[in-house]
Nucleic acid binder design. Structure first.
Length: 192
DNA sequence: ACCGTGATAATCT
DNA sequence: GATTATCACGGTG
């Protein structure tokens, strides 16, 4: 399907990461493959808020892998984990402040039949891999995010937003319990 | 519960 | 350059 709405502008991402994580719920993530697009509505996110956040990859410093998080907001940070799974993030905040929102689940749009619950599964199903690292999400090109039909001025998604600790970050000390995971309450496509 | 799988970064020689 | 520990997961049992 053709993703509805306009792409989210860079200013959308240049805000506190937890705000962006919440406001991305209900938006539409789209990956172009030649003449067609695979897409879904974002229903689950996690905020990784900066170098002081021990669960954030940037807490280990500025490296080749984390470089994109130090750059301008609105770009994609895609990395490979456990040797086989890709995960996609949207870079947030100002240039020089490394932070990002992990997209953990989307509700598949028509034509998308494989599972999209879980950060690795949604990348596999939509066809997102490391070649999409540093893609500009604010341009309707290879990988982008649209308003999803909801006015940009709507500060919160329709429906109730639930929150809780992030998944798989138990070794992040004080940050392990921080309520930085967000999802649309009751949505069947949320992971776990 | 268990483990595949390979990139990444730190810690060595 | 080599070794090692770790890992924002998912499939299988």
């Amino acid at each position: 399907m053709t993703p509805d709405g306009r792409v989210l502008p860079r200013a959308f991402y240049a805000r506190p990461t937890a705000e962006v994580a919440i406001d991305l719920l209900g938006r539409r993530l789209a990956c172009a493959h030649g003449n067609y697009v695979r897409s879904g509505v974002i229903v689950e996110t996690e905020a990784y808020v900066g170098p002081h956040d021990l669960a954030c990859h940037a807490a280990r410093g500025r490296t080749a892998r984390t470089e994109v998080m130090f750059g301008r907001p609105g770009h994609a940070y895609v990395y490979l984990i456990y040797g086989m799974h890709n995960c996609v993030n949207a870079v947030t905040e100002r240039e020089g402040h490394p932070a990002a929102v992990l997209i953990r689940a989307v509700e598949p749009d028509p034509g998308v039949s494989s599972r999209t619950d879980g950060p690795g599964r949604l990348c596999k199903t939509l066809g997102i891999d490391r070649t999409h690292n540093q893609a500009d999400l604010t341009r309707r090109a290879r990988l982008f995010i649209t308003t999803g039909g909801r006015p940009l001025s709507a500060e919160r998604p329709a429906g109730e937003v639930a929150t809780g600790p992030r998944i798989g970050v138990s070794s992040a000390g004080e940050w392990a319990a921080a309520p930085l995971r967000f999802w649309l309450a009751g949505n069947r496509w949320v992971s776990r």
